[in-house]
Design a binder for these strands. Structure first.
Length: 558
RNA sequence: GCGCCCGUAGCUCAGUUGGAUAGAGCGCCGGGCUUCGAACCCGUAGGCCGCAGGUUCGAGUCCUGCCGGGCGCACCA
């Protein structure tokens, strides 16, 4: 609906340009929005105000011109009013709303899908946790966000690849092997030293036991034994991470190994390219890249004095590889503790001549876990943390995902596990799911009474005249444009609020019928019942589609 | 010291990219089920949108400076 109105408006402006009624200028940034106050119509635009300065005329004057020349061939608009300092408020014809409603039912599970992305190839890289321990809550937040963004982008016509970058080449992974090996040694010698910054979690001991049961670590040289611990530990952890993510309904298309960048020679190629662009230099026996030329606050080391490459070097090579695989836009979802890393990476990509905006980084703020009024500090090394899997077992996938997706990624999230458990039936996710289940129940009732959906709703939908019914239709009609907005703002939490709103409108509507039988969906008037069934059927579709995009189930019964 | 994020109702958080009268959930108080699901609905109370300036037709939203909280400032990953 909004896009129809937008096209109509821009046609009108074009026409005014052609006829010389308005002087021809580039179209400014303006908005078409659903006003907070219903008295201001179905849609409002500030277009006249944004045109005022370039036209050198008053906003209201421009508004009059636009309204006088509206090219409403499709008969979309009931009326257009000029209001306030220069808004135009539009009221849409009821017939258009009914048409929008039948579209929803016609399209069903693809309602809201669109081709905004035009098959643009994009990648979302997320989670990318070191395989040195189980996933914790922070990873879960990133997983939920990345997964839902992927779903929404796909739905909006982008060709999305989901990728997990495995940091399996550095110090951390070596430390994992040493930690496991040390735990193994401690089984016979409790005095055996434990690595200074080793991983203390119980899972390390479990790994030591499992590995030593299958392989005789004692029989091999220490170095080799540690290598075995490293390789096996890494693989086991990675398998566990994959399992946890699948249980959290988060699939990936590609698991990309940092170590492959070394073995494939891509790291060296990447360095050569940046060298050819004359952005490399040597200093103090190390190899540097001049990121300061591109906005970083200091230059960065790629190869250390000891000849080892830095993590930054492989990460650069990795992004070069993303580009060479043909991705036109890449989104990385990172923990906010990496924010200082963003300018560095952007600068490095500029040094390669990547176009600005090729990489978007979404930073997620910290998740803090509270239990019994105490903050539980999470540290893999200290071993005192609650895993994602434990939380999901305790609370359930649906509520956990919903809570993660309800907060803007810019705000730190306090996850009070007692509160979430205590309120489990009050979690907003159940409110939305309940609306879905309730509608399913109405359909069961209708079926038992022999009332079914009409094949063609023509002539029936005019029976929908209540404010509550029109409010539902209007809200549902904004679903597609909401999804498009989410793609540009990268803020999927807006979808959870939208669904809560829509569910509220439905529950209110439903409750009309508890007082007045004439307002029930199923009444003695069979045509009216069919029309209302059609309406709530559409609500079920939109809620179902929305929940699907959030990776949350839409139950028929609860 | 420098950089990023946050500060909105008692609590947890939204706020349609600068719009018209700032919202929701929880909590408090009071109402609503003999036929479509009460995991619901309706109503009351509760706000110097951290503070002070600025930008303009218009600021919770943008800019500057403070205050408070979180997170970063590696030849770690």
């Amino acid at each position: 609906m909004k896009s129809k109105l937008k096209a109509l408006l821009e046609n009108t402006i074009d026409d005014c340009f052609q006829q010389g009624i308005l002087s021809k200028t580039p179209l400014p940034n303006y908005v078409i929005e659903v006003p907070n106050n219903p008295a201001h119509g179905d849609f409002a635009t500030n277009l006249p105000m944004t045109l005022a300065s370039s036209q050198k005329r008053s906003p209201r004057e421009i508004a009059f011109v636009i309204v006088d020349h509206l090219k409403d061939d499709g008969n979309l608009i009931e009326n257009a009013e000029i209001a306030g300092p220069g808004f135009i408020n539009f009221r849409i014809k009821a017939q258009e709303w009914y048409r929008a409603l039948s579209e929803i039912v016609r399209l069903k599970e693809i309602y809201g899908r669109n081709d905004t992305g035009n098959h643009q190839k994009m990648m979302i890289e997320f989670v990318s946790a070191n395989p040195t321990g189980p996933l914790h809550l922070g990873h879960g937040r990133g997983a939920a966000l990345g997964d839902t963004l992927s779903r929404i982008f796909s739905f909006c016509g982008y060709d999305v690849a989901r990728e997990f970058y495995i940091n399996d080449a550095g110090q951390q992974i070596k430390l994992l092997g040493e930690s496991i090996f040390s735990r193994f040694k401690q089984m016979s010698d409790p005095e055996h030293p434990f690595p200074q910054k080793g991983y203390h979690g119980d899972y390390i001991l479990d790994l030591a036991k499992t590995i030593s049961e299958e392989i005789d670590l004692e029989a091999m040289p220490e170095e080799e034994a540690i290598h075995v611990c490293t390789q096996t530990g890494k693989q086991v952890m990675l398998d566990e991470i994959k399992q946890d993510l699948l249980r959290f309904r988060v699939p990936f298309d590609v698991w990309y190994r940092e170590s492959d960048l070394y073995s494939s020679g891509q790291l060296k190629d990447a360095l050569k390219i940046v060298k050819d662009r004359e952005q490399l230099y040597e200093k103090d026996g190390a190899l540097w890249i001049a990121t300061t030329k591109f906005g970083d606050d200091k230059d960065r080391v790629l190869q250390k004095q000891d000849g080892q490459f830095t993590y930054f070097a492989t990460d650069m090579a990795y992004h070069l590889d993303k580009k060479s695989r043909g991705f036109e836009h890449v989104i990385n979802i990172w923990g906010a503790d990496h924010h200082g890393y963003v300018p560095r990476m952007q600068a490095a990509l500029s040094a390669y001549g990547f176009p600005e905006g090729w990489l978007s980084v979404v930073l997620i703020q910290l998740v803090k876990l509270w239990r019994a009024g105490q903050e539980i500090k999470m540290s893999k090394r200290a071993g005192s943390y609650v895993t994602l899997q434990e939380l999901v077992d305790e609370v359930g996938v649906d509520p956990v995902r919903f809570i993660f997706l309800t907060k803007s990624n810019d705000s730190a999230l306090d996850f009070d596990i007692d509160l979430v458990k205590k309120q489990d039936s009050e979690n907003p996710v159940y409110y939305v799911q309940y609306a879905h289940a309730r509608i399913c129940s109405i359909f069961r009732k209708a079926a038992s009474e022999g009332i079914s959906l009409p094949d063609a709703p023509d002539g029936l939908l005019e029976r929908l005249v209540l404010d509550e019914e029109m409010a539902l239709i209007k809200r549902m009609a904004s679903f597609p444009s909401l999804l498009i907005d989410i793609c540009s703002s990268l803020e999927p939490h807006r979808l959870t609020y939208y669904l809560t709103d829509l569910a509220a409108l439905f529950h209110r509507y439903f409750n009309l019928g508890t007082k007045t039988p004439d307002y029930r969906v199923l009444t003695h008037d069979s045509a009216l019942s069919q029309a209302r069934l059609f309406l709530v059927g559409a609500v079920r579709i939109v809620i179902g589609n929305g929940l699907e995009l959030l990776g949350i189930s839409a139950p028929e019964k609860m």
